[in-house]
Design a protein around this nucleic acid. Sequence first.
DNA 1: GACAGTACATGAATCGTTTCAGGTGGGTTT
DNA 2: AAACCCACCTGAAACGATTCATGTACTGTC
Lengths: 335, 335
Amino acid sequence: MPVSIRDVAQRAGVSVGTVSNVLNRPGEVSAESVQRVSQAIDDLGYVRNDAARKLRAGISTTVGFVVLDGQNPFYNDVVRGAEDEASSHGIAILYGNTDEDPSREKVYLDLFREQQVRGLLLAPFGDVLRQLRRLRSAGIATVLVDRFSADGEFSSVSVDSIAGGRLAVEHLIETGRRRIAFVGGPFELRQMNDRLAGARAAAENAAVHVDLEVVATTSMTVEEGVAAGARILARPRRDWPDALFAANDLIALGLLQSLVSGGRMLVPDEIAIIGFDDTIFAAAAAVPLSSIRQPSRMIGRTALRIVLEEAADPDSIPRQTVFPPELVVRRSTTG
Amino acid sequence: MPVSIRDVAQRAGVSVGTVSNVLNRPGEVSAESVQRVSQAIDDLGYVRNDAARKLRAGISTTVGFVVLDGQNPFYNDVVRGAEDEASSHGIAILYGNTDEDPSREKVYLDLFREQQVRGLLLAPFGDVLRQLRRLRSAGIATVLVDRFSADGEFSSVSVDSIAGGRLAVEHLIETGRRRIAFVGGPFELRQMNDRLAGARAAAENAAVHVDLEVVATTSMTVEEGVAAGARILARPRRDWPDALFAANDLIALGLLQSLVSGGRMLVPDEIAIIGFDDTIFAAAAAVPLSSIRQPSRMIGRTALRIVLEEAADPDSIPRQTVFPPELVVRRSTTG
DNA sequence: GACAGTACATGAATCGTTTCAGGTGGGTTT
DNA sequence: AAACCCACCTGAAACGATTCATGTACTGTC
């Protein structure tokens, strides 16, 4: 039932070696053979058995991609970029979503190792250094996504989160805000700390006095944003901040939902909100959301390209690719 | 460098067959052997080579999932459900997103066939019947997702779109709307036609007279929703509908964006909007969006379970699993 | 016509697992 | 003590592709 290279060879009247050559280096085969083999392949509906190929040639045609939040449109965009690049190389993507759960992350890393992926793209959450090293020694290259690899041990593709945080807060200050809250978490995430650090830098370097407080969330979801918004509103009015810098758009949307619920339209007049990522939903929000744009597809494309290069050359030196963030101003910050 | 089952066998002082048995049927091996082999595996950091396993045993440990819109949170939820089920079986998901492009769809189907996935989950867009049949004859089971398989040739897991359409329009009529526009497309999609059919049925069976027009979009995206909204607003005011039923939440969000842009807050007073899918963004929208909820994770879980069952039993009969939709009322339809 | 060089084609060996027919040794039955 | 069972182990064959050393046939040169 399953048709193998041998069947093709027989039908085309050539040896298996020739069929393999037609498949892999058509240039080294006579035009006639190419023609006859192609014909036989069509007739028989032959498809290469990737397992056998992988086994013998050691060439894997899959790349793993593990993201930390599958609900976040930002990661969907990144994956989409990776996909484009991958399919142009005939490579398929093994996808895993950890939902910020270190044990799920571990499971996926093991699973993908067993699958012997060609390389791994990872938006890390937990402490995976040991595992990544083991992957490397098994010949699997890893590129970190959305996370600068400070020690330079692995390649990474990310946006300058510090600059992003600064952009956001500078914008808030310029538009007259003075009591700013950074809403985000968990702070195990490096990006999180960087965004906050950028925010702090902007606040400190401002010509005017600016208060910057931190409202911590346990994850970067809409629900957490809603909850944080409720906590803020529960304070006496004089203790409200006049601007919120959300660690990502999901949190920002949650905040927005709190602040406009029950017909209270506090944004942007009383409180400005700015998000991060500039996902497709930012523009469609209750109040169109200002945000810090990341070139998400480009991040995905680039990461995939790098991982393939590293897989091809195991001695390559890890490199950090950092894109600049971009401020996108919408109604939520401009009364 | 790479450690094989032979290395493990040697270190444990047993034969390769025994190691394999420890891995696959530990019950049939003496406790001592299990212990020694496990020890050796740990010492050596051995991981099974999935390619070899797949080649010899013909057992694949991946399932393909091809969705038609990776930006749509609905599909992300479905994938998440499938993921949960998959990882509990040690199965990895090969992910592909076609973005409503039939040629991409074809590419992924070929790619996944080459990978010899255990089964395939597919939210189809184009005409893939021929390809699916070929996959089947190659021993790869397919389960259609979010699409009822009318002819019963393949298994499917979906929500009753007709009922969903009816629910939506009945709700609009009950809340006093009489001039309803269905905004959606493309109509190559069966779900699309079903949702519209349900809407028509509700309009026709209503006790009062109801107008139902169709505003066609070329895809189910926010941008298309925005464009459709603009077209509607461009009409003389007396020709405006008083309610919009969007084929999914993304379109609904786009419509909303048009209708509240420039400070015009037409929703819900002048125009009601209801979406479909009840994605996480519906509640966070400009005006919290009424929608028709699909049990998305459950759809994913179920589809994966079924595809595994069918892979295990090639003679199983295709079955259609249909979940009921659920009306979720929010501000966008209740003045 | 001998020789080298070119252009292709061949098929056996190989990758790392799983499978399975056959083997071993000790215990139980008759 | 012969016959049989049982629990466990062994090792070679097989999966389907790729690789590579070895052929073969033809062209052109001197």
